[in-house]
Design a protein around this nucleic acid. Structure first.
Length: 732
DNA sequence: GAGCACTGC
């Protein structure tokens, strides 16, 4: 069969082509195989074709996973085109909201998240013969879990006629480790086809210079230096976020002016230099401009976040200016929360950034930091996601896949036990697992939803109480990117704030969750949702994806309802109160109580001090509040909680003891299946004692009246009035 | 009275 297949001349020129026979043989001979090759080797597009033509798809499809949706889609497009086939026929892709496959599909590109969902539905992966995990070096949470799961099944699951073949593809980094992990399987290396990149340390930043204003200044200087001194070729500058990028772009204009460049507002260019910001939250039409080649004789300078490191490839980049920093979400065990912070990048990440200059020709990478900074501040590798994020959802997935002992699961890099225990504790608190660590019937329902387990918990309760129409949009809005536009200009900023306040005041009740619901509903009901968003300073793209998520959640919920697994309940209170009480079930781990002044104290055992973020509709009303729940935390000048809702102590009173009744030691034995009846009895008596202590506490009584709905609305009205008066006072 | 990197189901 393979003899008759012809490949295009372009495909034959790819470095991988000369290894075709050996690669096919290696896959045939082994259950596990590691394939390494730099960008441009052709491994992602060619290997699946080789296997297909060699008849390996006879026993089932060949599936290739990608960490990103765009990658899955564009690669599938390219491969179907190369093979002269219609996309969705023999070659297809599947990502969330978009399944472009058919019965004929033999080569399927999917996101790693989709693959995990498929394993959940069919753990033996009956319809596949080969699974290829691509971009394994990126160490995405889902890919890491997939590697562990596939190692565990070892290809030889029952219910399969032939064992499943597993190929793990990675850049040259850490392939020994991958091979060792997969039972010292063979490693197949394919040379890449990239160009050399000269790397220079400019010594402008030392180990102590972590002020953002410092490194912004330096990258700007370097970018202008490159522009004046280096030959033609575009520049890519790496910074950490939107505001830094805006500052740097402004400075580029100003500096350019100072050294006698022409500054043209209309085309955002100084003489010969086109300055383009690039970050994820930017409108898509503005992003498109980035990919167009600059006009003749003009040099492009893209100032970007890490989005340009993997997600987007810009052609023509010859120079990199690397700040050495990145914004990263890290879990802080000390406060028990996730914190978004600016940290030095790893050495491997720096190499990745440099590599962006060598895609089309030889390039140069200018690192503003010193060799000292490199040695002292930058770790060898980026800590994989699995070791620094909440594992709650992942652990539930594993448990549902029958991986009971989640501590001894074969992790490529084992997360700290503490992180796993925190996840178990949360799942226990959500009633997703029982004391023995077994998945409950509720947990089995929860795993169906593509949401954080806490939010799912709230949603399922809302469904039982028949007020899911309130919770579904909120869950959807909370699981998409930022909804509210915050313009840089002070004038427009005020206007945006005004619009947002207006929407908040029209919401049924005064909290940030209700405001999200109101945005969703107002937007959906308007004649032109996109125009409505523009007028109200709302990201239409985000609301649009929330609409899709809402639909997806409705479909899942509908299915579960038809199965009759959601038991109806009735609470004796109004809809708004039912809604907030449902939220409590999902967020009682995020409860805070007001302490001194405007500060709040978290009740999760860490007792951290937090403040309400100024973007919250409850900001400025702290004195009227006592107990609140919140969606997330932002650690900047202070620890801020965002998306906040006032609650009554009554609603969480019975839930709070659950936060303390399981200690780490106990859960670790739960996790290890070593729990005895005796231990269970011990917990129960201790729990009873704690409950008693809790109920004797009388602090709650006087608080309840204050947090009632009407009083908050009134208080808010008073606050806004005072504020308006103050502003008018200033003007006079 | 602050200002949110990037993915994914």
């Amino acid at each position: 069969m393979s003899g008759q297949v012809s490949y295009s001349s372009e495909a034959c020129k790819l470095p991988i082509y000369q290894f075709k026979k050996e690669l096919v043989k290696a896959v045939k001979d082994n259950i596990f195989l590691v394939v390494t090759g730099e960008t441009g080797s052709g491994k992602t597009t060619q290997l699946p074709q080789y296997l297909y033509h060699a008849g390996l798809s006879k026993g089932g499809k060949i599936v290739v996973t990608q960490p990103r949706r765009v990658a899955a889609i564009t690669v599938a497009q390219r491969v179907s085109q190369e093979m002269g086939l219609r996309l969705g026929d023999e070659v297809g892709y599947q990502v969330r909201f978009d399944d472009c496959t058919s019965k004929n599909t033999m080569i399927k590109y999917v996101t790693d998240g989709c693959m995990l969902r498929e394993i959940l539905a069919d753990p033996v992966l009956t319809q596949y013969s080969v699974v290829i995990l691509d971009e394994a070096h990126e160490r995405s949470l889902n890919t890491d879990i997939l590697i562990g799961l596939l190692k565990k099944t070892k290809g030889a699951s029952h219910g399969r006629s032939v064992p499943l073949k597993v190929v793990v593809m990675s850049a040259t980094l850490e392939t020994e480790k991958l091979s060792a992990f997969l039972g010292h399987c063979p490693v197949f290396s394919i040379p890449g086809r990239t160009f050399p990149v000269t790397e220079k340390f400019l010594n402008l930043i030392g180990p102590k210079d972590t002020e953002s204003s410092l490194y912004i200044k330096e990258v700007v200087k370097v970018a202008l230096d490159v522009h004046t001194n280096e030959r033609a070729g575009d520049i890519l500058v790496f910074l950490t976020g939107q505001s830094e990028i805006q500052k740097a772009c402004d400075m580029l204009f100003q500096k350019a002016e100072a050294i006698d460049y022409r500054y043209d507002v209309n085309d955002s260019s100084v003489e010969g230099l086109l300055i383009l910001p690039l970050y994820g939250a930017m409108p898509t039409d503005q992003q498109k401009q980035i990919f167009q080649p600059p006009p003749e004789g003009i040099r492009k300078c893209v100032v970007a976040t890490n989005i340009a490191a993997t997600s987007l490839t810009i052609n023509g980049i010859k120079y990199i200016v690397d700040s050495g920093f990145v914004k990263q979400l890290n879990h802080s065990p000390r406060v028990g929360m996730d914190i978004l912070e600016v940290v030095p990048i790893s050495k491997s990440e720096a190499q990745q950034r440099a590599g962006r200059a060598g895609r089309t020709s030889a390039g140069k990478c200018f690192r503003i930091y010193s060799k000292d900074f490199w040695e002292k501040c930058m770790p060898e590798y980026t800590i994989p996601e699995i070791q620094r994020t909440s594992l709650t959802a992942v652990i539930l997935t594993l448990k549902c896949l029958g991986v009971h002992d989640v501590i001894r699961f074969p992790y490529l890099d084992r997360p700290e036990e503490r992180l796993i225990l925190t996840a178990l504790k949360q799942l226990y608190q959500y009633d997703a697992i029982d004391r023995r660590g077994q998945v409950t019937s509720l947990g089995k329902l929860m795993v169906e939803f593509p949401l954080h387990p806490g939010l799912t918990r709230a949603l399922l309760k809302a469904a039982a109480l028949e007020c899911e129409d309130l919770m579904l949009p909120v869950a959807a809005m909370l699981s998409v990117e930022n909804i509210f536009i915050r313009p840089g200009q002070p004038e427009t900023q005020k206007e945006a704030e005004q619009k947002h306040r207006q929407i908040a005041s029209e919401a049924g009740s005064c909290n940030d969750f209700a405001m999200l619901l109101n945005v969703f509903e107002k937007c959906k009901a308007s004649d032109s949702p996109s125009a409505w968003c523009r007028e109200n300073w709302i990201h239409w793209r985000a609301v649009k994806s929330a609409l899709s998520v809402d639909t997806q959640l409705r479909v899942i919920l509908h299915r579960l309802k038809q199965q009759g697994v959601i038991e109806k309940e009735k609470w004796d209170s109004n809809r708004s109160e039912v809604f907030r009480r449902c939220l409590c079930l999902g967020y009682f781990t995020n409860v805070a109580r007001r302490s001194i002044g405007k500060s709040f104290c978290t009740m999760d055992g860490h007792g951290s001090t937090v403040h309400i973020h100024p973007s919250s509709v409850l900001f400025g009303m702290e004195s009227q509040l006592d107990w609140v729940i919140f969606h997330d935390v932002l650690a900047t000048s202070r620890m801020f909680v965002r998306t906040v809702c006032p609650i009554r102590y009554d609603w969480v009173k019975d839930l709070l003891p659950k936060l303390h009744e399981v200690d780490v030691y106990e859960l670790s034995s739960v996790a290890r299946e070593e729990v005895t009846e005796e231990e269970v009895a011990k917990w129960e008596s201790r729990e009873a004692a704690k409950r008693q202590a809790e109920s004797s506490e009388d602090a709650s009584k006087k608080l309840e009246k204050r947090n009632d709905e009407g009083s908050i609305t009134e208080a808010r009205a008073r606050y806004l009035q005072r504020k308006q008066e103050r502003q008018q006072g200033k003007k006079l």
